[in-house]
Simulated assay, not measured.
Amino acid sequence: MAFDPDLADRMETALRGLGADPVRKPMFGGIAFMIEGHMAFGTLRDEIHVRVGLDAYEETLAHPDAGPMDMTGRVMTGWVTIEGAADLSEAALSEWAEKAFAFVRTLPPKKQA
């Protein structure tokens, strides 16, 4: 399995608890959560990927659970990866969801086709 469906459900619940209305999209063999047309949060294998933006990137990398997001041999700045995410508490998962939601709220909504 490319992603943990229970973890994806927990991620969606965390985003909805913040007032987000995420849309699930299969992406890169996992699931991405789109908010207002912007990719914000995702899961692949036992990892979560959190979009934090360039301004918060270095500070977020200092978190002991966060590492650079590198899915293709190229680091995607503005995103961090948290491994072993299925073991995160609901509170910790919600904190990561808040970081993603806080960043995408700074972006203008994309037009939906």
Rank of each mutant, 00 (worst) to 15 (best):
M39K: 08
L18I: 02
I35G: 00
L54C: 05
G17H: 03
L44P: 00
G53P: 00
A20K: 09
G19K: 04
R51E: 15
I48H: 12
V23K: 10
G42L: 14
I31Q: 08
L15H: 03
Y57L: 00
A8W: 04
I35K: 04
L15T: 03
T13K: 13
P22I: 09
R51Y: 04
E47F: 04
R45K: 09
F28W: 11
G29P: 10
T60Y: 05
K25N: 02
A40P: 13
E59D: 15
L44R: 07
P22K: 08
P5W: 01
T43Q: 06
H38C: 04
F41C: 07
G19D: 05
E47Q: 10
L44W: 02
F33L: 15
D55H: 12
G19P: 02
A32M: 12
R10A: 10
D55I: 13
G37W: 01
H49W: 01
E58P: 04
D6R: 12
E47K: 12
G29N: 06
P5T: 07
E47H: 11
T13Q: 11
G19H: 09
G19Q: 03
L61T: 00
I35C: 03
G53L: 01
E36I: 05
R51D: 07
E59P: 04
P5C: 08
Y57N: 06
E58I: 03
P26A: 15
P26F: 11
D55W: 05
K25A: 04
G30I: 00
A8S: 08
T43G: 15
F28I: 14
M11A: 12
M27R: 07
E36Y: 09
D9C: 03
T60P: 12
D4K: 00
D6W: 13
D21W: 15
L61H: 09
D46C: 05
D9S: 10
H49Q: 14
V23D: 13
P26D: 11
M34R: 04
G29C: 08
D4H: 12
P22V: 12
A32G: 06
R45N: 15
G30R: 05
L44F: 01
M11G: 06
G30Y: 06
M27Q: 07
F33A: 14
M27W: 01
A56L: 12
R16V: 14
F41W: 05
V52K: 14
I35A: 01
G29F: 10
D6S: 08
M27Y: 02
A40G: 14
V52P: 03
E12S: 01
R10Y: 15
P26S: 06
D9W: 03
I35M: 02
D21A: 11
H38Y: 00
M27K: 02
L7V: 08
E47I: 06
L61I: 05
L18K: 14
A32I: 09
L7C: 05
T43S: 07
H38S: 13
F33N: 11
V23E: 13
G30H: 02
R24I: 04
A14Y: 07
V50Y: 06
E58Q: 03
T13H: 10
E12C: 05
E36C: 08
L7M: 15
K25S: 11
T60N: 05
R16Q: 12
A40H: 13
H49V: 06
A40L: 12
G37F: 00
L61W: 03
A14T: 14
D21N: 11
D9A: 14
D4W: 07
V50K: 07
